[in-house]
Design a protein around this nucleic acid. Structure first.
Lengths: 199, 199
DNA sequence: TCCTAAAAGCTAACCGTTAGTGTTACGGTC
DNA sequence: GACCGTAACACTAACGGTTAGCTTTTAGGA
C-alpha cells in the first residue's frame, strides 16, 4: 500500500523541508542560512529536519539517488549485447545537459561557491562510482577484472564532473568518452584483442 | 635568511601540534580525540592550532603539499622528450608503495574508518588533479586540449586512489596505467596518429 | 633602545549535529 | 469502535569544530 496517510504526510514534510531550504539558500546564500532558519521556515523541529536529511548539504542534493539509479540502470537495463561505453556515453550526455540547463544554473552557481557543497558532491560521486563499478562487474557479458571495472566507473564519473565544468559540455563528453573507450578496449583480461584474434 | 629564530619556532610549534595530534589519534581513535585535547596536549591554544592547520582533518594530511609537488615535478622536471605517462606511472607506483607500506598501515586504517577523513582526502585529490592538469597543460611537448589534460590528470589521481585500495597495488598500477596510456594516445588533437601520418 | 609586526593566547561565542525524552497520530488488530 | 504498537515529530540541552575580537609576548630591524 503505497498511499497510506502516514507515508504521504512524511513525503510532504520532506518535500516541504527540501523546497524551503532550496528557496532560502538561493535567496540569501547557502552560508547565510542556518539549519535553524530552514527548520523554522518549514515549520518543523530541527530534529525532524535531520531525520529526513543526514546533513545540511544533503538538503541541496536531494535527489542524488535518482542519479545513482539512472547510472546503474544504464548498465543493468541495456539491451543484450549492447556495448557498454556508448550506452554510458548517452546517459552521461543526458545528465550533463540536464545540469547545465539554464534553469539549473543558479543552483550550480551556489554549489560551486560553497566548499562544503563541493566536497559533499565529490564524496557523492565516489559513492556513485562504486555502485556503477559493482553494476559493471556484475554483467557477465563484460569480462574484466575488478580493478578494470572500478577504473572505468571512476573514469565515467570523472567524465560527468569534467564535462559539467567545461566550456562546451557536449564536445567535452565526446572527447572524454573517446578516451574512455580506448581505456576500456585495452582492459581485456587476456591481451588487447577482442574475442578471437586468429587469421 | 631562511633560518630566523621566528621561523624555526613557528615550524617547531607546527610540528609539535602535528605529532601530538597523530599520536593521540592513533592512541585513542580520531573521533575520540577533540581539538581541545590536541591543543592541551601540545600545550598551545586552540586558536594557535587553527592558525597552523585549517581543520581537524588537515592535522592528519599534514604533508599533502609534498604529494602535490612530487606530482607536478614529475611533469615539469622530467627529461626533455621523455614520455609523460611512463614517468607518471613510476611516480604513482612509488607513492602507492609508500602509503601501502606496513609502517603507514595504522594511519590509513584510521583514515578509512573515518568518513570525515575520507571526504577530506577526496577533495584533496581533486586539488591535486587540478594542479597536475595545469602542469600537463603547460608542457609545450604535449599538445592536447585542456579537457584532455584535465581528464588525464583525473585518471592518474584515480589510479593512485584505486591502486592504494587494491589487493595487489603493484599489479593494479600496471593495469590502470595501461588504460591511461591508451586514453592518452587517442587524445591527440587531430586524429589518432602520433606526429606525422605517412602518405 | 625602541618600534613594528608576527606569533601565540584567552574568552566567548556561532553553527551543525546528536542524545535524551516526551507527545501525537496513524495503521493494523481484536 | 476501542486498543496498542510504532513511526513521525517536538523540545531541550548539550557536544565539538571553528571563528571573531582582543590582549600579550617575542623576534628582528631602525
Amino acid at each position: 500500500m503505497p498511499t497510506g496517510r502516514r507515508e504521504r504526510k512524511k513525503a510532504a514534510t520532506r518535500q516541504k523541508i527540501a523546497d524551503t531550504a532550496l528557496r532560502l539558500f538561493l535567496e540569501r546564500g547557502y552560508d547565510a542560512v542556518g539549519i535553524r532558519d530552514v527548520a523554522a521556515e518549514a515549520d518543523v523541529a530541527v530534529t525532524t529536519l535531520f531525520s529526513h536529511f543526514a546533513s545540511k548539504e544533503a538538503l541541496v542534493f536531494e535527489q542524488d539517488d535518482d542519479f545513482e539509479q539512472r547510472l546503474t540502470q544504464t548498465v543493468t537495463g541495456r539491451a543484450p549485447h549492447e556495448p557498454l561505453i556508448p550506452a554510458l556515453r548517452r546517459e552521461i550526455q543526458a545528465l550533463v545537459r540536464h545540469c547545465t540547463a539554464d534553469s539549473a544554473a543558479p543552483i550550480w552557481r551556489m554549489i560551486d561557491a560553497s566548499p562544503a557543497l563541493r566536497e559533499y558532491e565529490e564524496s557523492m560521486r565516489l559513492r556513485h562510482a562504486e555502485s556503477l563499478a559493482t553494476a559493471i562487474a556484475a554483467d557477465p557479458d563484460l569480462s574484466r577484472t575488478t580493478t578494470a571495472c572500478r577504473t572505468i566507473a571512476r573514469f565515467v564519473i570523472d567524465a560527468y564532473s569534467l564535462a559539467r565544468e567545461a566550456a562546451d559540455p557536449d564536445t567535452a563528453v565526446d572527447e572524454i568518452f573517446r578516451m574512455i573507450e580506448a581505456a576500456w578496449e585495452v582492459a581485456h583480461p587476456s591481451g588487447n584483442s577482442v574475442g578471437t584474434a586468429g587469421p
